[in-house]
Computed example of a mutant assay.
Amino acid sequence: MSFIPYGRQDISEADIQTVVEVLRSDFLTQGPAVPAFEEAVSHYCGAKHAIAVNSATSALHIACLALGVGEGDIVWTSPITFVASANCALYCGASVDFVDIDSRTYNLSVDQLQIKLEQARQKNCLPKVVIPVHLCGQPCEMEQIHQLSQEYGFRIIEDASHAIGGKYQGQPIGNGLYSDITIFSFHPVKIITTAEGGMTLTNNTALAERMMLLRSHGITRDTKQMTHEPDGAWYYQQIDLGFNYRMTDMQAALGLSQMQRLDNFVQRRHELAQHYDELLAHLPITLPWQHPDSHSGLHLYVIRLQLDVIKLTHREVFDALRQQGIGVNLHYIPVHTQPYYQAIGFKQGTFPQAERYYQEAISLPMFSSMTNEQQEYVCSTLTAILSK
């Protein structure tokens, strides 16, 4: 059995041909594929606007800026996420804090959020923005988070980097019903890919226009946004300090092709998850729990070792799987335990559920092209390791 990664892209001949067509066209960077990809994603999700960028990190950054995050503001997110979910606030000059996770979904805990909000209100230090992270593709409890936003006055960015193709309360993630902005990632291990790439979605036209400006140097060719009539057909104005966060036409063409198989990708991931549930049910591990309101995109399949029963350590199980050619991973190291965040004042022990999760979690291989044979090898190998 060859090495089995925890995740990988699924590239078809149709995907390749679509990119080749762009390479043979007049547009490699900014052409018709970018708006076509944006339209496909916004239509699929039921959002009014979609803005394609070069990564989900860039998407998070311009989303924070569009919502006015700056010096003196506070942004809250989950400690179990990739560092970009927190770093985006720091890029804007704001400070960041975390809300501990729910013990079953591993998403930001609504109960802990409400407790922390009430404490923050009493101290007059409420967050400007909260960034719930849809870990593994399972959406957070967005209706309750939205209700809290109405009471406590914060804005919401859904970090749905793992979650395109999933649903919440029967509706597509990304429709913006309970948030200001939603973020998707199209990294190769995600559900669909543009190689590198990301996207912001919103129903707010003013936010969309601001993010479009910020992704391209703060430059506009829209005469309605200019300070005076253009000098000629060549004219543009820089009206803000933006960035080079644009997606290329080659990337967008790949994404547009991949969108045609998105539902199939998610369906296959659910088949794999169900098979994992069946094959691993007898082991001393905790299997993923799905909230009844959610239909996960299933970017990841995370198990937790019952270390009080297993005679091996977390690291021993992880290393044993790697030694057998199974590319397990760990999503994620709690952000507040990273040296950079420790240096700015965060301490071990602050978010106990997140820290316990880290001590027990392992991401098993999960990708749409994974074969039944590969999956059965993963399960039989894990069974053998845990029986020792």
Rank of each mutant, 00 (worst) to 15 (best):
T57K: 12
T57V: 09
S58Y: 04
S58K: 02
S58I: 00
H61M: 10
H61R: 10
I62N: 06
I62Y: 01
C64M: 12
L65N: 02
A66Y: 00
A66G: 15
G68T: 13
G70W: 04
E71R: 14
E71I: 13
G72E: 02
I74E: 03
V75R: 11
W76P: 01
T77A: 11
T77L: 08
T77H: 11
S78G: 02
P79M: 09
P79N: 10
I80W: 02
I80F: 02
F82Y: 11
F82H: 07
V83N: 03
V83I: 15
S85R: 06
A86L: 09
A86S: 15
N87K: 07
N87T: 10
N87Y: 13
C88I: 05
C88K: 09
Y91N: 14
Y91K: 15
Y91I: 13
C92P: 00
C92Q: 13
A94V: 14
A94I: 06
A94E: 10
V96A: 09
D97P: 03
V99T: 11
V99I: 15
D100V: 06
D100W: 06
I101P: 05
I101N: 06
D102F: 00
D102A: 05
R104E: 08
Y106M: 06
Y106N: 10
N107V: 05
N107G: 11
N107W: 07
L108I: 07
S109G: 04
Q112S: 12
Q112N: 14
Q112E: 15
L113K: 04
L113P: 08
L113M: 11
Q114V: 10
I115F: 07
K116L: 09
K116Q: 15
K116W: 06
L117Y: 02
A120S: 05
A120T: 06
A120M: 08
K123F: 06
N124I: 04
L126Q: 14
L126R: 14
V129P: 00
V129M: 07
V130W: 02
I131S: 01
I131Y: 02
P132V: 11
P132C: 13
V133Q: 04
V133I: 12
V133K: 05
H134Q: 01
H134Y: 15
L135S: 00
G137S: 11
Q138N: 04
P139A: 06
E141C: 08
M142P: 03
E143A: 15
Q144K: 06
Q144M: 03
I145V: 13
I145N: 01
H146A: 14
H146Q: 08
H146C: 06
H146E: 00
H146V: 01
Q147E: 15
S149T: 03
E151Q: 15
